[in-house]
Amino acid sequence: MSATPTIGVLALQGDVAEHQRVLDGLGARSVPVLRAEQLDRVDGLVVPGGESTTMSKLAVRYDLMEPLRKHVRSGLPAYGTCAGMIMLADRILDGTAGQETIGGIDMTVRRNAFGRQTESFEAAVRIDGVAGDPFDAVFIRAPWVESVGPGVAVLGQVPRGERAGRIVAVRQGSLLATSFHPELTGDARIHRLFVDMVKGHA
């Protein structure tokens, strides 16, 4: 692995540019991914926030879903935020009929679990393995993790309020997922963790 890893951002829909900005700021080289062959040239993959049903539909329609599964299964490190978390889940609840995912993380994710946009919120969330203050986590029509398999580490939970204890950050091997959007706040700590994972240092 070179000092400057190339990290693809799945560009079917969503806040692609925000992820690219954070990754580039950390010294990685980010590239938008729209075609299967581009996956051969990346060291890691970010699946951004957006609308998961749309992203899933377009991935199937444009012949990206199978290549994505193949690469993730064979060890391509990946980080999903919000819709990206849903895309990396082995099982989902409250999706649309037949909604497919890339999978890879042994978890069940409930789509839009925190409600519609008027219920979208911010909360301070502490993330295991990330030093310093809790994260200003921005949740937008966000999912939560309903349950995880034995190989999955829970990294973060909603600290208080009626949703206290809901799982919002997980890691399984080289796969990382958060319900919230660190790409929107300018706090690069979780992306740094992912870049270190891609480099094989974390």
């Binding site: 540019a17 919000c82 008027t118 979208s120 911010e122 301070a124 809790p134 029509r141 949703r163």
Partner: peptide, 29 residues
């Protein structure tokens, strides 16, 4: 400025980041 370590509110709906963030999610769609 919604939540800080000094002032950890429970949660905050309708903040500027939550609203603009929603708009960001719709991009490319």
């Amino acid at each position: 400025v919604a939540n800080t370590a000094e002032n950890p509110t429970e949660s905050t709906v309708g903040t500027t980041r939550v609203k603009r963030g929603m708009a960001e999610q719709l991009k490319n769609g």
